[in-house]
Design a protein around this nucleic acid. Structure first.
Lengths: 210, 210
DNA sequence: GCAAATTTTGACCGATTGGACAAACGTTAG
DNA sequence: CTAACGTTTGTCCAATCGGTCAAAATTTGC
């Protein structure tokens, strides 16, 4: 009975919270959680520190909110991996979607990478629960394709890992990728080159041997 | 003429510096540079903070020393990629060596990943210089193999990226890998499974079509 | 237009941090 | 043995950090 009704959000609250989260994404993804200060986030959001703390009472609260939102969008592509279409087409789409996310949401990718690198202190339960279930489920789908001879037999879990690794690499290790490719090849075209390469590696590589 | 002769290292200095670097690797790789404190490192090394600062005057000095050492061992496997052996065997060896490094030196991998994730503020020149040269050189070797029809034609740079990404993934994203594989498959065998999968993906995938 | 509620600010606090320093303690070469 | 040098420690400091608080400014509902 004591469940105190949480006040509904004001217009200003909605807007300012969004502003703060956007700023926090920028700062956290660049410096990590401990490497970021409330002052930095506040400045990036164009407000004073106490003002920011009026909307989020603790630094961790910002990070948690950010992380929760992230996870939904982050797992969406894998959730879409369907049993209905052609296996190779499905996989190609999945890889393309993941690569597009690395291109369009590099900060989200780095925020996630940061969290995992530090041992995933805040999202380990989610990894062992929700994520594991989802991957196990999709691994079964892939196994079905293998049994049906639609793609070559291999380990579905490590296949998924390698898709994650290769695509997210272009967001998380962007500085390195650009440095190695140099000013010419490291420009905007690098994602198309990557898409072509990954498609060849995975899709051609998984085609059943004629 | 004014080049002041740097004092030769004492026995104790050599030992203690080594002890500190080992402790710093542990701490830095787990919490990142800004997330780590001198106190943590000192405690991990079993000495007091002022004592540690006697051997390394600044926190950055520890990190720099660690990073310099890291880079040598980190690039060694790629340097060994040779034009003399059989291309597919060479690539297989390279992948295996990189995966072994992820297994045996995960802290080094994470230290490196942390630095790149933050934008490589301390090693960007090295990436654009030494690393780029090395990769360009090896890309030429791989291109030669492709021209000779020894492996299928593809982008050598992105091939190298994908080998880096997939192998280092098992060190940098270890928590996630273990969480998803679960207690059974996530045990010690995961590296052998990964080795098998990556060999199939890259080596079989690069075999010229019969 | 006005009272209540919300938003913003400046001043402040205790804890933690990187680092300085001199004094005390060990070690070592002659 | 001892003087010179190397090592260790306790104490201290200024800067930065996350976070509080009351008062001022603003917005909102009526």
């Amino acid at each position: 009975m004591d469940t105190k009704a949480p006040r509904p959000r004001t217009r200003i609250q909605t807007e300012k919270r969004e502003l703060i989260l956007e700023a926090a994404l920028e700062v956290f993804s660049a410096h990590g959680f401990r490497g970021s200060t409330i002052d930095q986030i506040a400045e990036a959001a164009g407000m004073s520190k106490p003002n920011l703390l009026y909307y989020f009472r603790r630094k961790e609260e910002i990070h948690e909110t950010l992380m929760q939102r992230l996870l939904d969008t982050w797992l969406a592509p894998l959730k879409e991996l369907d049993d209905i279409g052609d296996p190779l087409t499905e996989l190609r789409s999945y890889i393309r979607r993941k690569l597009e996310m690395a291109r369009d949401f590099p900060r989200e990718s780095r925020l996630f990478a940061n969290e995992i690198l530090q041992g995933a202190p805040r999202i380990k339960p989610m990894l062992e629960g929700e994520l594991k279930s989802l991957v196990d489920e999709k691994a079964e789908v892939i196994k079905g394709w293998m049994r049906a001879g639609k793609i070559v037999k291999t380990d579905p879990w490590h296949l998924i890992f390698s898709i994650w690794a290769t695509t997210q690499h272009y967001a998380d290790f962007d500085v390195q990728v650009r440095a190695v490719l140099g000013p010419n090849r490291g420009g905007d075209g690098r994602f198309e080159d990557a898409a072509r390469f990954l498609e060849q590696l995975f899709v051609d590589g998984l085609k059943p041997k004629g």
